[in-house]
Design a protein around this nucleic acid. Structure first.
Lengths: 221, 221
DNA sequence: ACAAAAGTGTTACACGTACACCCATGG
DNA sequence: CCATGGGTGTACGTGTAACACTTTTGT
């Protein structure tokens, strides 16, 4: 005995954020279907019958980037009647955080995809702009309570790199002495013995995240 | 040219939280349809064809409580394949904050509804328990940045009442001297000249929220 | 007069913030 | 040797947390 009621198409749209060492970037694709065909859009797809919602988001992300074990979380669902000019579609947005420097080349050529700096975004279809700003709010929130760099940086990274990431997220400069004090005092970072000499003559020590602390709460700011 | 793809039933489920001056409470109904007919459930309904998602939540809340201008916000959508044993249904949860002492009597008798203290909840259908705990997390989060009491208390309230509310939300005792200092320093409270003598011989001054600050961010904890 | 709740101030400590110099190295 | 970025310590101020007594008044 099925429930009575109207049924709806469900889209998943992915706000894929990456960090290249300097700035935060967003991965966009050229929309392949009408309406708005050819316009810049979040990577998305439709939920299928026998698929968990999370699984649909993972499938969509993987089809574009090839990546399958990426931090991803649902934001919310957008359900205005008129949000999609092509028909009634509810969209559940997900945000994903990836190390874009590593990923840059592996993008599926099936979609015309491109990374955009956050302050140079093109105009986006439908309510995707709102989805992006909601995702950025969530990123800031999450960065205050979780060691977010784990998702956005390579396995080994330097303190100046980590600081650049936080400065990009919060769009604000930090004092490097206070920054290193705060981060090191969390116990989340493990200093390595080797250095990254690519950015300076002296070289900056590499760090790794302490895996024991990744799931724990911590506090930044 | 409609989009291709599967369509789904969309439920809205409301986590209706109230405060009676002593404890936080949750409003539940006895489910009227199979499966799980007669079990305790969040108040819910199905999204209809020509309705914004928010509007559906407002409709559902109003049909039970008669209330129409209540603080309400979406939490997230729950989309596991097997979450509803009656069929594939995605559910968008909303949470609502109301002054339950005022509302207690106006409940529609169409639904068998009852308030439950948070530490005495019955077992709930499907994933409604998870929806409740997600809502409580959001309430805590929101209470740190917004003058939340505005939604959960009568227009006039006393500092001890407000403190009880915060203690219920955070499940933690606060020092009343520090509490009043913190709250008064936000500028969010306007002292009235009259007192509430119902709870003590001496009487506690009433306060109102400063409406200019309701939309602004503030910080508690 | 006493029980019960309201109201109020000070101190100690932790944390956040501001700030400047030396170090190591490749060129 | 010098330019470039990396690394480190201290002092001050702000905010938070701990703590106890007096006031009011109904009974």
């Amino acid at each position: 005995m099925p429930y009575p009621g109207n049924k709806f198409l469900i889209a998943v749209d992915c706000v894929i954020l990456g960090f290249d060492g300097i700035q935060l970037q967003l991965l966009l694709v050229k929309r392949g279907i009408s309406p708005e065909k050819g316009a810049w859009s979040l990577m998305g797809g439709f939920l299928t019958e026998n698929e968990d919602l999370d699984a649909a988001a993972i499938r969509v992300l993987k089809s574009l980037t090839g990546l399958s074990s990426v931090y991803m979380d649902q934001l919310r669902v957008y359900g205005q009647r008129d949000r999609d000019s092509g028909g009634r579609v509810l969209s559940s947005s997900f945000y994903a955080l990836i190390d874009s420097s590593k990923q840059r080349q592996n993008l599926s050529s099936e979609f015309e995809a491109s990374w955009f700096a956050l302050d140079e975004l093109p105009s986006l279809i439908f309510d995707h702009k709102k989805m992006v700003s909601d995702a950025l709010s969530k990123l800031k929130e999450r960065a205050t309570t979780k060691p977010i760099g784990f998702n956005l940086l390579p396995k080994k990274f330097t303190l100046p790199q980590l600081q650049s990431l936080y400065e990009a997220i919060f769009d604000k400069q930090f004092d490097k002495r206070n920054f290193s004090k705060r981060l090191l005092s969390t116990g989340a970072l493990i200093k390595q013995t080797d250095k990254d000499k690519s950015a300076s003559k002296k070289g900056a020590y590499f760090y790794k995240f302490n895996p024991e602390i990744i799931s724990k709460d911590f506090k930044f700011l």
